[in-house]
Design a binder for these strands. Structure first.
Length: 312
DNA sequence: CGGGAAATAT
DNA sequence: AATATTTCCC
């Protein structure tokens, strides 16, 4: 009989939310300026060294990043050269966004808070307050996220066939299910069971956040970016055996001009009028890495970002 | 305009 | 191969 499993599913939002620690760094990651751009990837942020994790310097580790330098075509000044005729401008695009676990968590959190109902790229993006994040980015990720959930919900059958050893198990976390089943953010009353009575939540339009009216002292600067010059770093550390991970800053996204003059390009819309900015509450960030190691004892089998690929 | 899905590139 | 980026469609 499992009726209530995670009463504090989103409840933690109320408490954990206050974690400006991570949020700040995000914006802070903007690096000082060209320092980063000029050099290469000082993402190592000097502040905290302990979390360097491992992929820091790796220059080559990931290997698949192309810096931009090629804004040539892009253009600003018109100079398009002209031509190449094929698709030079295409391949040379901005660096790939690195969805770091933290960033992803943030994404999930945002979606959770909004509820599948409002879990739309635009809202999520805003809720995340992540600079540089674009709708496209979120939209794309959202797809993946949805797929991931679908994978679990819909098909949990492992079996199948025969075989055997597949244990299915729907390891689907209750949260996952709830995520889709739950509407917006029906904060459950403290100490009270989830009295989810009406399927529809009385929500007019923009979800107001309770934490919004608390202390307004944080000059959250969202909407204005400084120098979007960052480059994704390596990836997470590897896992087998070692087991170290944790902690990396997640700030990515760059603009068209990598090493150029302050040619700031603005993105995002201002919007307008119908845009009610909601208070960017901080999100709780926790790194849950099932480091397996051997055995551990636990019983956690899952988690790798998204098991996009359960098996080939 | 916005969101969703598919296609494509890395 | 996996993931992210980009594009097209609705």
């Amino acid at each position: 009989m499992r009726e209530e499993e995670e009463p504090s599913w989103f409840a933690r939002f109320d408490e954990d939310l206050p974690a400006p620690d991570e949020l700040m760094p995000l914006s802070q990651s903007l690096i000082t300026r060209d320092l980063a751009a000029a050099f290469d990837i000082p993402t190592t942020h000097g502040g905290g060294g302990p979390l360097s994790g491992g992929a820091d310097g790796a220059g080559g580790a990931g290997g698949q990043e192309m810096n931009g330098g090629a804004s040539s075509a892009a253009g600003s000044s018109g100079g398009n050269g002209g031509g190449n005729g094929e698709e030079p401008a295409r391949t040379l695009k901005r660096p790939r966004l690195v969805w770091t676990p933290q960033l992803h968590k943030r994404f999930v959190d945002a979606v959770a808070h909004l509820g599948i109902k409002n879990a739309v790229p635009k809202t999520i993006m805003q809720l995340m307050s992540v600079d540089g994040l674009t709708r496209e980015n979120v939209a794309s990720h959202l797809q993946k996220y949805r797929l991931y959930l679908k994978r679990m919900q819909g098909l949990g059958n492992g079996g199948g066939g025969g075989g055997g050893s597949h244990s299915s198990g729907s390891g689907t976390d209750a949260a996952t299910e709830h995520l889709f089943a739950t509407g917006p953010s029906p904060f459950l009353p403290p100490g009270r069971g989830p009295a989810v009575a009406d399927p529809y939540t009385p929500y007019a339009a923009m979800p107001s956040h309770p934490a919004a009216h608390h202390h307004h002292h944080h000059p959250q600067q969202i909407g204005h970016f400084h120098h979007p010059a960052a480059r994704p770093l390596g990836h997470y550390g590897a896992g087998p055996g070692g087991g170290f991970d944790h902690g990396f800053l997640s700030r990515a996204v760059a603009s068209g001009a990598p090493v150029g003059p302050p040619g700031m390009h603005h993105r995002m819309v201002g919007g307008g009028a119908a845009m009610g900015m909601m208070a960017p509450s901080s999100f709780a960030e926790e790194l849950e890495l099932g480091s397996r190691g051997g055995g551990g004892g636990g019983g956690r089998r899952e988690l790798t970002l998204f098991p996009t690929s359960g098996e080939h």
